[in-house]
Nucleic acid binder design. Sequence first.
DNA 1: CTGAAAGCGCTTACAG
DNA 2: CTGAAAGCGCTTACAG
Lengths: 341, 341
Amino acid sequence: MNKRVTIVEVAERAGVAVSSASNALNGNPGVSEATRSRVRAAADALGYVPSLRGKSLQAKRAFCVGLVVERDVAVLEADPFFGAFISGIERELAPREYALVLQVSGSAEESRRRYEQLAADRRVDGVFLNELRVDDPRIALLRELGLPAVGVNAAREGFPFPFVRQDGAAGVSDLVFHLASLGHRRIAHVSGPAEFLHARERVDAWRSALLRSGLEVGPLCEGDFTYDGGRVAADELLGLQRPPTAVVCANDLTAIGLMNRVQELGVRVPDELSVAGYDGIRFGDYVRPALTTVQTAPSHLGQEAARLLLDAIEGEVGADERFVENASLVIRASTGPAPAR
Amino acid sequence: MNKRVTIVEVAERAGVAVSSASNALNGNPGVSEATRSRVRAAADALGYVPSLRGKSLQAKRAFCVGLVVERDVAVLEADPFFGAFISGIERELAPREYALVLQVSGSAEESRRRYEQLAADRRVDGVFLNELRVDDPRIALLRELGLPAVGVNAAREGFPFPFVRQDGAAGVSDLVFHLASLGHRRIAHVSGPAEFLHARERVDAWRSALLRSGLEVGPLCEGDFTYDGGRVAADELLGLQRPPTAVVCANDLTAIGLMNRVQELGVRVPDELSVAGYDGIRFGDYVRPALTTVQTAPSHLGQEAARLLLDAIEGEVGADERFVENASLVIRASTGPAPAR
DNA sequence: CTGAAAGCGCTTACAG
DNA sequence: CTGAAAGCGCTTACAG
């Protein structure tokens, strides 16, 4: 490990006190132009880079923010959401000289411990609150811990931290209307686990669009946002006395699983069954038939969330709520006219 | 932000000097059992958690390691490698109380700056060197910066840092032999960019397996590890005067792109063309036909890499090289008997 | 065994 | 404008 140059050495070389060196380098007032440039020259000559550790202790800040991803490894391997989300976060963080600490947790319980640890160590100055649950215990925890936080797709009302949202209700409505216009009268939904806010919102959007279309509220089965969950749902829906002619899934992974399973059972998509997802992951465009979906923008969401979080940490007033453009319907080959009866 | 309890307060409450409190809490020798338990009681009562920042400055350590992921956002969205890799890293880091700082970069040049910054700030105590290139400039950079590093799938010879490898040559050989046994005599390869070590290794493995099988070294075209690259390669290979009857792709994404494109052109897989990938991403099992591939274990690789890195940082002697189990052939539906001539 | 001191590298009041 | 001092929270020699 190379020895570091400290501000003391810079001050010595410039022939000034360390406090003057500090003030000069940080652009603080009360330093003559002459000494300022002398200090700068010394710093350059020595290749001085301020120590984050020294600064951190002094400023009582870590210059890091935290993201806890609660995912099974197996699921993480198939879930492209976080790559894009993180890359959006990074785009905002890097120029502001913050870093992202990423943790992976396997359960809600482990996540809680991770947040606690992160806060106790003061390893980060703030955290993202993603994949919020109904009555999410992390909310109380973070308030208690006094750690700044930003919600990602949090509830519009009653959420105590700043948040960023990408609304998908309009996209889901458009999807349901699209299916209705293709003659579908029985449109099912495979939801995510009901404990998740975003799962509920999609159920609500599906239901209310059906009602507005004057259609019956079709079969609903609870999935788990996974590929295998989609396969299970396929069996369940096809086993119904009156199977649906279209299925709206809570995410693309579920839709792909469902689509594969029904095809294995000899059901043609979209001729006999229309299938749609939600998220707009790349792979939706790679499967056959290509998946109709509601396109989200996780990287945009990540960037806005990071912006809000840094603003909160640095005490900027800033907007407490930020909405990125609505998720929107993308029609591909997995949806088509309802089969003739 | 709640006020923190410091070791000074703990010492006061226990009625001892801070140095004794520190020694007691850290299990250092030279503290009587009586004071040790008194200090512990005080710490518990106060809810004391040592400040990472204080400790960090003192120890000249960040208790963080860094990973720079060089990926276009669009690619990151479709690339499930890092989710698994990171989750493996985390599994090793968490119990040892290290954290992962993740950075996303869009180019080799930006990556270099990220590594420099990481080292200059001393934000991390070590870094992972993944996706190594031939004559990778990061190697010299990191040696110069004096930052501990661990290579992921680095060259077996001449790599100056500890490294972990998962060899895939045997898997690729098995794949080629499998295709040969199915009657294929003209087996193409779509490689990754030649600058990458892992791309070259796969080319070499393909070539040498062909030679050992007594087959001609089939057409080779350079892809870029992306889905679209696979599509382009499809056109190229099908346009050949003597198109191959099987294609081994440098990764699954490429294989999926290639497979989709040839199918669009009316070529049946595997009846008219066998296609195989490399990586073993989940989605390979979700496309139709399901993709034959060479299965890697990125999370295992991540975990071993993290272990080596922490050992290097903490000055453990430890193994300098670590091999996880070889990547192995997984036969699925995208490969089959060569078409009758 | 115990405690006072110094130091990790910085910045922020505060005298001069 | 400039500099000496204190302090952020810890640990590590070193006296006693």
